[in-house]
C-alpha cells in the first residue's frame, strides 16, 4: 500500500515537473523573405509542436536579436537561411542537419527581372527595385549576380522591401519599380497565375544555386534530436504540410556529406 502511494506521489511530481519544464524551441529568422506573419506562424507552429511535448516556435523579425539568441542559447534548434548561415558559421559552432525542400528541390536561384525596355543593369541607375529580402541580403545577392559591374552603379539602385516575391514582380507592371529581385520559383508561379505579365519580363541576371533554409543545431541534445525527427515527419500529414506551406516549404530532409561539404565551400567563398 505504501509502495502504491509512493509511486502515485512520484508520478505526480514528475508530471508537475514536466509541466514546468521550459519549452525547447525552434528559433526562426529569414532575411530572404519579408512575410511578416509572425503571429500566425507562432500560433500555428506552437499548436502543431505541442502535440509532441514541450516544444515552441520562436520567430524573429530582427536579425540582431536572432543572432544574439543564437550565440547565447543552447536550448533549441535554429531555422535559418543558408545565406545567413555563411556569415554565422564564422563566429559560431553550428552543425547544419536538415535542408528544406520546395518545388521538389533543395536549392534556389535569385533572379533580377525587369520589363523588356530595360536591357542592361546600367538602365537601372538611380531607379528603385523591389525585393522581399532584407536590404543587406538583397545587396549581397545583387553584388554576387553582377560582380563585373562597378560598385557605385549597384549603390545607386534603391531597394524597396515588399512583403512577397509576388508583390515585387507585380510592382514592375504598375510602375512602382524598374526591376524585381525574386526567386526563380516565384517567377515560375507568376507564369502560372499571370502568363501575360511573365511574358513581358526580361531576366537581367541570375545568381548561383544556393541551398534553401537550413536547420542547424549547437552541440548534442536529446530534445534537439526529437525536434529534428518531428520536422522531418511534418510533410507526412496534411496538418504538418499546411504549416510548412506557411514558410513556403514542402518538407525537410537530412543533408548528405557531399551537400555539407558544398555548403561549407559556399560559406568559405563569401
Amino acid at each position: 500500500m505504501l509502495g502504491l502511494i509512493l509511486t502515485f506521489c512520484c508520478a505526480n511530481l514528475f508530471a508537475e515537473a514536466d509541466k514546468y519544464t521550459p519549452p525547447y524551441k525552434i528559433y526562426f529568422y529569414n532575411p530572404e523573405s519579408n512575410i511578416n506573419n509572425f503571429h500566425s506562424l507562432k500560433v500555428k507552429f506552437d499548436s502543431y509542436l505541442s502535440q509532441f511535448g514541450a516544444f515552441e516556435f520562436q520567430p524573429f523579425d530582427k536579425k540582431e536579436t536572432f543572432e544574439k539568441m543564437l550565440q547565447e542559447t543552447d536550448d533549441g534548434i535554429f531555422l535559418l537561411s543558408s545565406w545567413h548561415y555563411q556569415f554565422l558559421i564564422k563566429n559560431n559552432s553550428l552543425k547544419p542537419v536538415l535542408v528544406a525542400i520546395a518545388n521538389g528541390k533543395i536549392t534556389q536561384r535569385k533572379t533580377l527581372s525587369s520589363t523588356s525596355d530595360l536591357q542592361r543593369l546600367e538602365d537601372l541607375r538611380g531607379k528603385s527595385i523591389t525585393t522581399a529580402g532584407s536590404k543587406q541580403y538583397s545587396k549581397n545577392r545583387l553584388r554576387e549576380i553582377f560582380s563585373d559591374y562597378p560598385q557605385e552603379l549597384l549603390d545607386s539602385i534603391k531597394l524597396v522591401r515588399v512583403p512577397t516575391d509576388m508583390d515585387a514582380l507585380s510592382s514592375i507592371k504598375y510602375g512602382m519599380s524598374a526591376a524585381a529581385l525574386s526567386s526563380e520559383a516565384s517567377l515560375k508561379k507568376l507564369n502560372g497565375i499571370y502568363p501575360k505579365l511573365y511574358a513581358q519580363l526580361r531576366t537581367l541576371g541570375t545568381s548561383k544555386q544556393k541551398f534553401l533554409a537550413l536547420v542547424v543545431i549547437k552541440g548534442h541534445h536529446e530534445k534537439a534530436q526529437q525536434l529534428l525527427n518531428i520536422l522531418q515527419k511534418m510533410s507526412q500529414t496534411v496538418d504538418g504540410r499546411n504549416k510548412l506551406h506557411m514558410l513556403g516549404l514542402e518538407g525537410w530532409r537530412m543533408l548528405t556529406e557531399p551537400e555539407l561539404k558544398l555548403l561549407n565551400v559556399q560559406a568559405g567563398g563569401e
Binding site: 500566425s40 506551406h245 506557411m246
Partner: peptide
C-alpha cells in the same frame, strides 16, 4: 491553394 499560404500575412481562426 495551400501552397500559397506563404503569401498570407495573417491567418484568422
Amino acid at each position: 491553394n495551400e501552397t500559397a499560404l506563404d503569401s498570407v500575412n495573417k491567418i484568422v481562426e
